[in-house]
């Protein structure tokens, strides 16, 4: 009786399968065309399968340049965001400063605005200040939305730290630095890790703001965009895409498990 009642109807199963296929088949196609022997167009089915594109991609210096640039930009933007986002979240959630709600809104705004607006705004600001477009302008551009992600994660966790925990720490003899290190950091650590991972991922595949703030450099997504227009050696792009998927999937999986445990720790005793 029970198992029959819990069995979902066939229509629902088909709908669910169709939905999943809609989301994931294109990704599988990207993997498939990394092995195709046809390098100019994506015809289906692929005329033959080969692994030669892996070797080709490995030996292309422009792939390495774009990858290194993207990793550097994402790392530095994430590091800036971690510091500023955490400080901002601490100020907004732990104190009653003037215009707190407004500041909170202004911090979140860059992610709500279309990227193109952020891009144009930053580009004209850099031009007016006569800052040449460089590696650092890309980093600054990315940091604007990375801060939001870290801030959002941190502020949610900060709100769950009861104010009396910080007072208890001070009462027991810990100064501000010790309280941050022994009480606040362990409680927000997993939230920062998750926020940092997300910020890194966002920066890593960002196109619009990068287009407006980059000089001659091309980050990995921009390199991919340029590659797709070229009719030669197209599968190299697929190889790179596949590697990017594999490399980013593992840390995101890790972050998921870490924050899941973290929720249990932070939720305990409340």
């Amino acid at each position: 009786m029970r198992s029959e009642r819990n069995r979902s109807p066939l229509g629902l199963k088909i709908a669910a399968a169709a939905g999943l296929a809609f989301m994931h088949v294109p990704i599988l196609l990207i993997f498939l065309y990394a092995f195709t022997t046809e390098e100019k167009s994506y015809q289906f089915p692929p005329p033959g399968l080969t692994t030669q594109w892996f070797a080709v991609a490995w030996n292309r210096p422009d792939v390495w340049a774009a990858l290194t640039l993207s990793v550097k930009v994402a790392s530095i933007a994430t590091a800036i965001a971690l510091v500023l986002g955490t400080l901002c979240a601490a100020a907004v959630s732990q104190t009653r400063l003037f215009g707190r709600e407004t500041i909170s809104l202004l911090v979140i705004l860059p992610i709500a605005l279309p990227g193109i607006i952020t891009g144009i705004a930053l580009r004209s600001a850099f031009s007016m200040a006569e800052i040449p477009f460089s590696f650092w302008t890309i980093v600054l551009g990315h940091a604007t939305f990375c801060i939001v992600v870290v801030y959002n994660n941190a502020v949610a966790r900060f709100r769950r730290i009861s104010g009396s925990l910080i007072e208890a720490s001070m009462d027991l003899g810990a100064d501000g630095f010790q309280t941050f290190r022994y009480i606040i950091l362990p409680n927000i650590g997993t939230a920062l890790l998750a926020g940092g991972m997300l910020a890194f991922a966002l920066s890593f595949d960002e196109v619009i703001v990068t287009t407006f703030t980059a000089g001659q450099q091309s980050t990995l997504p921009i390199w991919m965009l340029e590659e797709l227009i070229r009719p030669r050696q197209r599968p190299v792009t697929n190889v790179v895409a596949m590697i990017v998927v594999l490399v980013t999937f593992l840390p995101i999986l890790g972050a998921y498990y870490l924050t899941r445990d973290g929720d249990q720790i932070a939720g305990a005793g409340k």
């Binding site: 925990l165 208890a168 720490s169 409680n187």
Partner: peptide, 14 residues
């Protein structure tokens, strides 16, 4: 040289 027992105990959950 004063210590407090808080109303909500404020034990460190971690």
């Amino acid at each position: 040289s004063v210590n407090t027992v808080f109303q909500d105990y404020a034990l460190f959950p971690h």
